[in-house]
């Protein structure tokens, strides 16, 4: 295994802890916002759903970056490719499915 920086155990522990703390705080914020939006009813239903959806995607990225440690560094390159490949596949499948099902719906009179 290649490591770009050599760390002492102390440094490594502190580095990891900071990563998990940052991730936890971000995840907490990204969780509180949707709950607050729904509780207060500031936006319309559609707008709320869109906002929640976007925030969910951001939270997925936060989890992947801070908890699964998949970032843009060279050591993690293969895992990044795997994530991108997976994301592309899932997007393709969902987009295709929504398109064709709505199209079928309109054609069935």
């Amino acid at each position: 295994m290649l490591v770009s920086k050599i760390r002492s155990r102390e440094d490594a522990y502190r580095h990891d802890l900071r990563g998990y703390q940052a991730g936890f705080i971000l995840a907490a914020i990204l969780t509180i916002i949707p709950f607050a939006l729904v509780a207060s009813g500031t936006f319309s239903t559609i707008a709320t759903l869109w906002v929640i959806g976007v925030i969910a995607l951001i939270q997925i990225a936060v989890h992947i970056r801070y908890f699964l440690h998949v970032d843009l560094s060279p050591e993690r390159r293969e895992e990044l490719y795997l994530m991108l490949f997976s994301g592309a596949l899932v997007t393709l499948m969902i987009a295709g499915m929504l398109w064709l099902l709505f199209n079928l719906h309109t054609r069935m009179m």
Binding site: L89, L92, M93, G96, L100, N103, L104, R107, M108
Partner: peptide
């Protein structure tokens, strides 16, 4: 291969 599955039901009535 994940972008072609509809060809198994071309005749289902899509446009």
């Amino acid at each position: 291969s994940f972008g072609v599955w509809l060809h198994h039901f071309f005749t289902m009535g899509q446009d």
